[in-house]
């Protein structure tokens, strides 16, 4: 009776064909066939230097955009919420570019949704669940804490002190008495 020999990977899972140049290294026992699905043989058609450099350029541009909120040309200095929304939009776009192109997720199969969507949902859910106990903690604060916590009034007091010192040093010409 003939000894059953190990089978080469078949194309039972769709468009993935024979491994190609990797099969010699598999024979060397470096790894099993499950480690190198044949999809990698055609991966040179994905990506490419031009695309990566384009994404890099887009990322640099977006970083400059988010840094733009710090410059004096930013028109919405008085409404910080506009800045926050803008910065979050820029960050999400940058993240999407890195995930889709650098991590090759654009060219992966549908398992990417199974992994990323629940993780994203958990991330947002986690942040929202922290709001009642931690985000709103100053709404129902005990007196003992209220006596010691910082308030905007303290910032104003420090500003006043700074102005007084500024005025005094200008007045005295900043020399020793």
């Amino acid at each position: 009776m003939s000894i059953p020999t190990p089978n080469k990977p078949t194309d039972s899972h769709g468009p993935i064909t024979e491994p190609g140049p990797l099969s010699e290294s598999q024979a060397a026992g470096e790894s099993t066939s499950a480690d190198h699905p044949a999809g990698h043989g055609g991966d040179e058609s994905h990506g490419g230097l031009g695309l990566y450099l384009a994404v890099f350029g887009a990322l640099c541009f977006l970083t400059t955009m988010s840094f733009f909120t710090y410059s004096s040309y930013w028109p919405w200095r008085d409404e910080p919420q506009v800045g926050w929304a803008f910065m979050m939009a820029v960050s999400c776009t940058k993240a999407l570019l890195v995930v889709l192109f650098f991590m090759h997720v654009l060219w992966e199969a549908n398992w990417k949704y199974v992994l990323t969507i629940p993780a994203a949902m958990m991330a947002i859910f986690l942040a929202i669940m922290l709001i009642p106990d931690i985000g709103l903690r100053n709404r129902m604060v005990a007196q003992e804490r209220a006596l010691h916590m910082a308030r905007p009034a303290d910032l104003l007091l420090l500003e006043q002190a700074a102005n007084a010192a500024e005025g005094e040093s200008h007045h005295a010409g900043d020399h020793d008495h």
């Binding site: 942040a127 922290l130 709001i131 931690i134 985000g135 709103l136 903690r137 100053n138 916590m149 910082a150 308030r151 905007p152 303290d154 910032l155």
Partner: peptide
């Protein structure tokens, strides 16, 4: 995020 936006100052 929650600590920062929930802080008084």
């Amino acid at each position: 995020v929650v600590l920062r936006f929930g802080a008084a100052v």
